[in-house]
Nucleic acid binder design. Structure first.
Length: 269
DNA sequence: ATGGTTGCAAAGCAA
């Protein structure tokens, strides 16, 4: 049985409701991992998914971040945050970790919807937070594979990292201006997942250069084809062996009211 | 043209 799994940073689920509904009908995905809902459970549009045949689980604490998974092939063992997920700022405050990670098992695949923190700038405290957040997640991800080398795991989401020079539209500018997403510590953090056995299953099907998943709203970046590849589906080996196709749905970035990220889809046998 | 976009939420922050 073929299964389609997608990841999409929607940049507000309420502002994007109509486009998301149209996209669900058009894309025919079975599972979609969503980032940046910018919603709480109270104002989350549950009916948007339920009316279209999807179960949905959401994790949102305020107007920032927010992650969800919608599925029409089962949605079991929902998990919000991962163990010891770092907090930003004081460690002695009693607030929850930010709403950046949710998992569920869908058709036998452990799907994670991840919204990796933005480092803001290379020396900002948020960068250390980002790297720590990734390091803790990577340790768990490595443990899961060690415990079961046949596990079917999809680490999907907005990683806020461009792993290769070709993943940004002007690497010279990014390095000259010491921008984020392309720094060596960020790339090492991403590489650590690959070294743990996870595989970017979209890049082999859609190689670069010029293949992007995100285009800034400003400066006419999309029409000028000035984007970044920062949204990834990393698959465990057993899951990677099932991948038959992938799509970066650049069409969805077009027109009025688009998210600044395109959906990324993989098809499994 | 000293800006340029979007969303949340109600001024400024975040991306």
């Amino acid at each position: 049985m073929s299964v389609k799994i997608a990841t999409w940073n929607v940049n507000s689920i309420r502002a994007r409701a109509d486009r998301i509904e149209a996209w669900l009908l058009r894309s025919d995905v079975d599972v979609v991992a969503i980032q940046e809902t910018k919603a709480t459970d109270e104002n989350f549009p549950w009916e948007l998914f339920e009316n279209n045949g999807y179960e949905v689980a959401h994790f949102g604490l305020n107007q920032w971040n927010g992650v969800a998974i919608a599925s029409r092939v089962g949605l079991d063992d929902v998990e919000r945050t991962f163990m010891d997920q770092p907090h930003f700022g004081k460690t002695d405050d009693a607030v929850h970790a930010e709403a950046r990670a949710i998992a569920a098992t869908c058709a036998g695949v452990r799907v994670w919807s991840l919204y990796v923190p933005n480092g803001r700038s290379r020396n900002d405290p948020h960068m250390a937070y980002k790297l720590q957040w990734l390091d803790v997640l990577k340790k768990h991800a490595a443990d899961w594979l060690q415990a079961d080398p046949q596990a079917q795991i999809a680490l999907t989401g907005d990683w806020n990292i461009a792993p290769r020079d070709e993943d940004v539209w002007d690497i010279e500018k990014f390095q000259r201006e010491e921008l984020t997403h392309v720094s060596e510590p960020e790339r090492a953090a991403f590489r650590a997942f690959e070294e743990a056995g996870y595989i970017d299953v979209v890049r082999p099907i859609h190689p670069g250069p010029g293949t992007y998943t995100y285009w800034d709203y400003t400066q006419l970046r999309f029409p000028k084809k000035e984007g970044m590849r920062i949204d990834f589906i990393l698959a465990s080996p057993a899951l990677a062996s099932r991948v038959t196709d992938a799509i970066i749905d650049r069409e969805e970035r077009k027109g009025k009211g688009a998210s600044d990220h395109a959906p990324v889809i993989v098809e499994l046998d």
